[in-house]
Amino acid sequence: MSSSTEFVKHEVAHHFVDAEQEFDSAKLGMWTFLVQELLFFSALFVAYAIFRFLYPEMFFEAHKHLSWVMGGINTLFLITSSFTMVMAVRCAQTNQNRLTIINLILTLIFACMFLVIKYFEYSEKFHHGLLPPALFTGEGVAPQLPIFFGLYFAMTGLHGLHVLIGIGLILWLIFRSVRREFHADYYTPLEMVGLYWHFVDLVWIFLFPLFYLIG
């Protein structure tokens, strides 16, 4: 294990008593923010629940337009990226800077793969005109079919936006890791972005069965 002297030393902000208080505050802040995120998504899930309750057959028919293979692969990508993320944090805790960077880059790659697949899925929907109501030109079995795709694009789109933001954050982490800023005494940003990234994973864990696996 390399000694921590070669890392960039972290200055505790003036209004905190010590690094422990600073870290705890950041963590609680992040959790509070995630709680906010959870309720941000909640209304969409409520809308989903209502319309699936009202039009179960329509949902069953509609989900055949989605490819569970692509959704499934995307699930695996996100889970793997969550794993590499958690390993990146752990490597920082044990002062293994090189491994931190490698894990972060892997996370970045899986996140981008997720978006690539999402891109193919979306373009296929565009091709068939299976879009939100105002743009919908597809052929539907049920008159309420546009609602399914309205919800699909609203929910996966918002989730995709979170992935995009996550990619930006991970890039920022890689940049800072290369400057050797994260080590056993200071890895707060890693931990925070990690929490955020797992939350993005968490949302997808529910989106996947709800849209792709309607039995």
Partner: peptide, 15 residues
């Protein structure tokens, strides 16, 4: 004393 050294580090096997 100065940093986060004291934090519990989760064993890799859990992950």
């Amino acid at each position: 004393q100065q940093g986060q050294h004291s934090h519990f580090i989760v064993p890799v096997k859990y992950y």
